[in-house]
Design a protein around this nucleic acid. Structure first.
Lengths: 192, 192
DNA sequence: AGTCTGACGGCACTGAGTAACATCACTATA
DNA sequence: TATAGTGATGTTACTCAGTGCCGTCAGACT
């Protein structure tokens, strides 16, 4: 018999989400989270860099995903196709469980300015990751930046629709639809 | 003779920037700032909502500026021209003193993750403000979003070049140059 | 059997931010 | 001229996120 129950991180995660849903993010203390998980504050801060990161723990993998999507695209793919490959792999990783989690998390997130700020930061990190990945594939500097904005915007727009809907369609299809909308908008708008 | 020295806010601001430049943002406490300004921590937090806002106090006016730029554009202006009008007014407000301030602030900002996060949030707020202003002028929803990304990106790219350079050219000229670059990039990239 | 390692607890601390109440020059009104 | 506000500041005491240091002990390793 081992000295401690396993999966400390998972227990903290579940405890935190329960408490956030019950009493809100701000009125839950880190000590309460640790206590419900059968641990102490010290351990919580060993496993999460700060309180906000408990909510966004999954987001860091996404950076690696966009990058991989761009890196794996066919040789000779156009800049636009490189970007699409990035957001395709990015959105492809979301299974249906993420939709349920999203429905719990989104209201908590909306109620806390602190969490909002972190969410925006994570979005920016994704944008920068996509921009860098595109730039590495020899896309022009301005093309890389503009395409990154477009792709990440499509991802977030698609995500919102996906979370709000109930259909069996995967996130990717919603995101690609948004990519098409934004592409059309940009074509119309940059000729004046 | 009045009971207190005037311009408490200004004194706090100057004290803070001095201390941040001397010892860095993180190792300066709010009590130290207040003390150098001849005030107390309480007053500091009455005048600034948190420690980060001391650095970004000027940013909130910018939101009003972009909005005004879009609102004031000619009737019959194209979506692209509406956006350009927004960033033109936005960047037009920066005088040479802002460049000096920027040179002091930028290294401080780069050294602190906390300030970085707030900076990204302010950028996002600007983007959202531009997007909403465009949408109010009957721009299509996707056009408004994509144009807002493009405009704010141009603003930040232009700002970086301006701060790094010494010429007499105003910020606006750098920003408009970036707008042109990004417009060309988007034209190339959205036809594949 | 002895030693090391790594995951956790305990404890005391710093510093941001909040809340409630006190102070007192100045102002307005009687 | 007395009196009653008003508003910007101070004082004190508090909560809570996050850090640092050290102690503990089961299991692994030799």
């Amino acid at each position: 018999m081992s000295r401690w129950e396993p999966d400390a991180r998972g227990r903290l995660l579940r405890a935190a989400l329960e408490l956030f849903a019950e009493h809100g993010y701000e009125s839950t203390t880190t000590a309460q989270i640790a206590e419900r998980a059968g641990l102490t504050k010290t351990t919580l801060f060993r496993l999460f860099s700060d309180k906000r990161e408990i909510v966004f723990q999954a987001q860091d993998e996404l950076v690696a995903l966009v990058k991989r999507g761009v890196d794996e695209a066919d040789v000779g793919a156009s800049p636009f196709e490189l970007m699409v490959s990035g957001v395709r792999v990015l959105s492809g990783a979301h299974v249906d469980e993420h939709r349920r989690t999203g429905r719990i998390l989104d209201p908590i997130l909306a109620a806390s300015p602190e969490l909002n700020e972190r969410a925006v930061f994570k979005r920016f990190a994704l944008t920068v990751a996509l921009e860098k990945a595109l730039f590495n594939r020899l896309v022009d500097r301005w093309e890389a930046g503009a395409l990154a904005d477009l792709g990440i915007r499509a991802y977030y727009l698609g995500y919102d629709v996906w979370v709000a809907s109930d259909g069996p369609a995967p996130l990717t299809s919603y995101v690609l639809e948004q990519v098409t909308h934004l592409q059309g908008a940009m074509q119309r708008v940059t000729n004046s």
